[in-house]
Amino acid sequence: MSIEARLNELGIVLPEAAAPVASYMPVVVQGGFAHVSGQLPFINGELATGRLGEDVDLEGGMAAARACGLMILAQLKAAGLLEQVERVVKLGAFVSSTTDFTDQPKVANGASDLMFEVFGEKGRHARAAVGVPVLPLGAAVEVDAVIAVSE
């Protein structure tokens, strides 16, 4: 089954791939790997902002991470790579959070679970989930990815 068909089956509509907000490429392919730049969470067209442990709850953080995952898929699609995914290798999740918030791994599950939902076993990956004091544009979460692709 194609990834597009799988997305349709799941009722997932990808957002438009976001344009870079600075001087970088959204996706760079090298040596059979697509390196997807950090993606911010857009939910219903609006950037999900705030800090976990302050004004964003765990569910909101997970939804923001899922939105980042959707944007990763949108970037792959825009680069013509969505159907070439061989494996999701690694996700890096950055969670804007207070010093006493320690559930960054649970927040990151929003993106991780999406990858498994879409790609099955090929979506299981290594991961880092890191708490940070602030992210670009005040985003609650940012996720980047390394994806093995067929050339």
Results as ranks from 00 to 15, higher is better:
2 S>P: 06
2 S>V: 08
5 A>W: 10
5 A>V: 15
5 A>D: 14
6 R>F: 01
7 L>E: 08
8 N>R: 15
8 N>V: 14
8 N>K: 15
9 E>V: 07
9 E>G: 14
10 L>G: 12
11 G>R: 00
11 G>T: 04
13 V>I: 08
14 L>P: 10
15 P>W: 11
19 A>L: 09
19 A>W: 09
20 P>V: 07
20 P>C: 04
22 A>Y: 04
23 S>L: 15
24 Y>H: 14
25 M>V: 15
27 V>I: 01
29 V>I: 10
29 V>K: 00
35 H>K: 15
36 V>E: 04
37 S>K: 06
41 P>K: 07
42 F>G: 07
44 N>K: 12
46 E>A: 14
47 L>V: 09
50 G>M: 11
50 G>C: 06
57 D>R: 01
59 E>F: 11
59 E>D: 15
64 A>I: 02
67 A>V: 03
67 A>F: 00
68 C>I: 13
69 G>K: 01
71 M>K: 13
74 A>C: 08
75 Q>C: 09
76 L>M: 12
77 K>N: 10
79 A>Y: 01
80 G>M: 07
83 E>H: 01
83 E>Q: 12
86 E>P: 07
86 E>I: 03
88 V>C: 07
92 G>F: 13
94 F>S: 14
95 V>F: 02
96 S>T: 04
97 S>V: 06
99 T>A: 15
100 D>G: 06
101 F>Q: 01
101 F>R: 12
101 F>N: 05
102 T>G: 02
103 D>M: 13
103 D>L: 14
104 Q>T: 13
104 Q>N: 13
104 Q>Y: 08
106 K>Y: 03
109 N>G: 04
109 N>A: 11
110 G>I: 00
110 G>F: 10
110 G>W: 01
111 A>V: 08
111 A>E: 09
111 A>F: 03
112 S>G: 15
114 L>E: 08
115 M>T: 11
116 F>M: 13
119 F>Y: 13
119 F>V: 06
122 K>Q: 15
122 K>P: 00
122 K>L: 14
123 G>E: 06
124 R>C: 01
124 R>I: 14
127 R>Q: 14
127 R>F: 15
129 A>P: 09
134 V>W: 02
135 L>V: 10
135 L>C: 12
136 P>G: 11
139 A>T: 10
140 A>L: 05
140 A>I: 03
142 E>Y: 07
143 V>W: 08
146 V>C: 12
147 I>M: 03
148 A>K: 07
149 V>D: 00
149 V>M: 03
150 S>D: 13
151 E>P: 10
